[in-house]
Design a protein around this nucleic acid. Structure first.
Length: 857
RNA sequence: GGACGGUUAGCUCAGUUGGUUAGAGCGCCUCGUUUACACCGAGGAGGUCGAAGGUUCGAAUCCUUCACCGUCCACCA
């Protein structure tokens, strides 16, 4: 059976994945390991398809495959997130495209939710397929969904517990309202967009006030000035009658440091129902709070004649009206400010007053709790602070603390139809929180929960909580959470909050944050830019293994990585290389000899060194380094040198041994091609039979490595000489050496450089090879081009002299001799002497050159 | 406004606790139809490590300041 010269991934990947799945190889229940290794997949949103960001899950697959091969009972648990806002928006968008366009209200809640569920079912199928295509070794038997029945039960239970512990409350607060989504948003779901707009200055009694949003100012009757602002000292705590939008109003003046003396006129009026800061002031001074704009973005009755009209559309009318009253002082046309917008749809946020559910992050936990007396916030800080949870890279730790410090109570109710219904029931002003309806006439809260509430429970709800399942005791806490740094706050922080509360333990030991995948120009990949790369396209074109390598190599934790097709193509070449090395070795196993030659000892030393280094890389989460190291070994040591040497040297059966180990080391990165090759010479699936290799330190021999480097150096020198003088490999070059190397080494150099080494002094003059550890000479008569040879020697001499100068400078420096470690000094001396010898030879060659040969005519 | 990250070869990036002559891949140039591989092989050119100071026998690496690019947080009516 002979393998084709090119590896075609499409012929193997699906088959191999199916084999793995059929064998139950991803299910930890089949493992006899005692130590567990658990990773819960960050659930992709059920909004359609996976993108390259999700392809970064490959980091988890590498961790998980490595752990599994190392004998650990390994669980990687898949699932999807219902992503309330995102999914609902997606379906609403589809509805709007229909003829005639539909809204969710046309369908009604029940039918609409049904539509969303159908869409989600379809998405989840696509996602399952994509995750398999990427080769991810997920335990599909434990697949979950944030909105399936067990998770529903868990979320409801959590809400009820937190409510009874006083950690969830209902309150009337300013919230971020998205008029398009018709829902509240958490603080961190609000994004800011810089915008140049008009800034209006109005005459308001004796002061001038500034605003970017005149339409909110109808009922303003409180002026705030800074206590130390000399311009307004006389006004403090007075009440004035001022002419305003709907006629004269009674306005009181408050002195409070919130007012910025240097901004605008230094005086402002406040709008308590539509600004967080103003709301806080209103509470502080017990001012009336009246809503002017409603959930739809229209004026309420409070706006008088404007009631029912769109607030944003009425801005100009209102300004005109004030102008006609002579109340416009001036207008600044180039005011830059940050407009707050919805992170989902980009619509401008309308802050407004509303009854909502909140998680209380500053409420001490009850007496019976593990962390009794501490607040959620404190616990979440503590577990990171004391090292129970480690964030990689470390610098995100301070970001985490900073965010935690400024965390306010978390608004968790969303006015959506799709999601976890809030288990609160109302009747005649009474409220009760429980799973089922208390009885006749009780109405359930119509809101659903923020999607991060359920994903915050992800490490334990997926394992069966609140039931004390075997999975929960076996696999929790998990070892690693691997995700993008962009959701450190959204998700990671909330998982820590909720898990420490629910279980009294951490959700994971390490948080490994990967960077974002960007295009070649460093831009975020997005549909609107059209610069996205579909992982499935790349997988089909270059193979999954190549895509995986491209995603890992050159990426370090927390730093963004660029991905482009050429990079994937170059790793496709690497996969072909693996294939061909494997193919060659498997076809040439019969040339058996005995005893270990220099090259055999060398490859064993290098191989064991590689395993040792890769182990260290895994321990320190440096997957990119591990991948590159292995790449380099396979291509530039095993293939370029060892395999080439074994074409003429007796083979003591090492080739296959080396292949076996290198396939294992490669497997977490490129599971498919390694599995295919494995099955060519081993019974059974690699995934089940291959154990992670152990480095044998006794095989690592620096002396052997050094000896081999000398051979490599000489061969490269000789090849270089050939290239320089255009001497074809058909011509066997005669090389003189006063002392012949041992016969195996002699053969190696002769074969690899296509030369013949002799100790018979030739008739003509010799040119010595720079740096050659074997002190080879080549007869000058074969060097045809005297001018070129002169140039070559001169160049070498200049380089050598430069080197020499730097060594001499060090060695002549008494401080260096006094402070530097001894071996460094010795090494420097040795190098200096070597350079000196070679330099002398080169100079002598140069001086002989014109005498030995006539210059060309 | 506050903080963080980046700046190393034409491009994309490595560079472990300061220590021999700063590396790789791609690209480029020269050569090669040597039966594992042209998705290949051999060789080569190319960098005063963003700038300026400082610490040190010794700095890409540590410290200070600055410049440019990027990101996050906060947000002023």
């Amino acid at each position: 059976m002979s393998l084709p010269a090119k590896y075609n991934p499409q012929n193997h990947e699906d088959v191999i994945y199916q084999q793995w799945e059929d064998a139950g190889a991803f299910n930890p229940d089949t493992s006899t390991g005692t130590e567990t290794f658990t990773v819960i997949l960050p659930p992709p949103n059920a909004t359609g398809t996976l993108h390259l960001g999700h392809a970064m899950y490959v980091v988890q697959d590498i961790m998980v495959r490595h752990a599994r091969m190392s004998g650990k009972k390994t669980l990687w648990l898949p699932g999807t997130d219902h992503a309330a806002i995102a999914t609902q928006n997606r379906v609403e968008k589809d509805l709007a495209k229909r003829t005639p366009p539909l809204t969710r209200y046309d369908l009604g809640r029940e039918k609409f939710v049904q539509q969303v569920e159908e869409f989600v079912e379809q998405s989840r199928d696509t996602i399952r397929h994509q995750l398999r295509t990427m080769g991810f070794s997920l335990d599909w038997s434990r697949e979950t969904f944030t909105l399936d029945a067990p998770r529903q039960a868990a979320v409801t239970e959590m809400f009820i517990r937190m409510y009874h512990d006083g950690l969830i409350y209902r309150g009337n607060r300013i919230v971020n309202w998205c008029p398009r989504c018709q829902s509240t948003l958490a603080d961190d779901e609000v994004e800011y967009r810089e915008e140049i707009t008009k800034f209006y200055y109005f005459k308001y009694g004796p002061v001038v006030i500034g605003t970017a949003r005149p339409e909110t100012k109808f009922l303003d009757k409180t002026i705030v000035v800074h206590p130390d602002d000399p311009r307004y000292t006389t006004l403090h705590n007075t009440t004035l009658t001022v002419e305003w939008m709907n006629g004269p109003v009674q306005a009181q003046v408050i002195a409070d440091a919130t007012a910025d003396k240097d901004f605008g006129s230094g005086a402002m009026t406040i709008t308590p129902a539509h600004s967080k800061e103003d709301f806080a002031l209103a509470q502080k001074y017990h001012l009336p709070i009246v809503q002017i704009i409603d959930e739809a973005g229209n004026f309420t009755e409070a706006a008088g004649t404007f009631a029912g009209q769109s607030a944003s559309a009425s801005r100009q009318t209102i300004v005109d009206m004030l102008a006609s009253k002579g109340l416009v002082d001036h207008i600044d046309d180039h005011y830059t400010h940050n407009l707050s917008v919805c992170y989902r749809c980009g619509t401008a946020i309308q802050p407004l007053l509303s009854d909502q559910w909140f998680v209380h992050v500053d409420q001490p936990l009850p007496a019976q709790h593990q962390f009794a007396g501490k607040t959620l916030k404190q616990v979440a800080c503590e577990v990171v602070n004391n090292g129970s949870i480690q964030i990689i890279p470390d610098r995100f730790t301070s970001t985490y603390f900073h965010w935690m410090d400024s965390l306010h109570n978390w608004c968790i109710s969303r006015q959506l139809w799709y999601g976890h219904r809030i288990p609160a029931w109302y009747k005649d002003g009474a409220i009760t929180v429980q799973v089922d309806s208390p009885g006749q006439g009780w109405k359930q809260d119509s809101d659903v929960l923020d999607t991060w509430f359920s994903s915050g429970m992800w490490t334990f709800s997926t394992l069966g909580w609140p039931r004390q399942t075997e999975d929960l005791t076996t696999f929790h806490p998990t070892q690693v959470l691997e995700t993008g740094y962009d959701i450190l706050f959204f998700w990671v922080a909330r998982m820590i909050l909720m898990t420490t509360y629910a279980l009294g333990e951490i959700p994971f030991e390490k948080v490994y944050l990967h960077g974002l995948v960007r295009d070649k120009l460093g831009r975020k990949m997005s549909k609107s830019l059209g610069n996205g790369i579909d992982p499935l396209d790349m997988s089909a074109k270059y193979g999954t293994d190549a895509l995986r390598m491209a995603l890992i190599a050159g990426t370090t934790p927390g730093n963004d990585a660029k991905l482009y097709e050429e990079k994937i193509a170059s790793y496709r070449n690497f996969i072909t290389k693996i294939w061909n090395v494997g193919r060659y070795i498997l076809a040439n196993t019969n040339l058996v000899g005995t005893g270990l030659s220099l090259s055999d000892q060398w490859i064993l030393s290098r191989l064991n060194r590689l395993v040792m280094n890769v182990n260290h890389d895994f321990e320190t989460y440096q997957y990119s380094l591990a991948a590159e190291r292995t790449y380099d070994f396979l291509w530039h040591e095993l293939a370029d040198w060892y395999v080439e040497i074994k074409k003429f040297e007796p083979n003591p059966g090492l080739l296959q041994q080396v292949l076996e180990v290198i396939l294992k080391v490669l497997h977490p990165f490129v599971p498919f091609v390694t599995e295919v090759l494995w099955q060519e010479f081993k019974p059974g699936s690699m995934l089940i039979t291959a154990a992670w290799p152990i480095a044998d330190a006794a095989q690592i021999d620096p002396v052997v490595e050094q000896q081999f480097v000398a051979v490599q150096d000489s061969v490269i020198q000789l090849r270089n000489l050939r290239n320089q003088y255009n001497i074809s490999y058909q011509t066997v070059l005669s090389v003189y050496s006063q002392q012949l190397p041992d016969s195996a080494t002699k053969t190696m150099i002769e074969q690899l450089a296509k030369v013949s080494i002799t100790d018979q002094l030739p008739i003509g003059q010799l040119t010595h090879l720079t740096n050659s550890r074997f002190d080879f000479g080549v007869e000058l008569s074969v060097v045809i081009d005297v001018v070129a040879e002169r140039q070559r020697l001169q160049k070498e001499i200049i380089a050598l002299e430069k080197n020499l100068a730097s060594f001499e400078a060090k060695l002549n420096n008494p401080d260096f001799l006094a402070h530097a470690p001894n071996d460094l000094i010795e090494n420097t001396k040795k190098l200096r002497d070597e350079k000196l010898t070679v330099l002398a030879e080169n100079k002598s060659n140069l001086s002989l050159l014109p005498a030995a040969l006539q210059p060309p005519k």
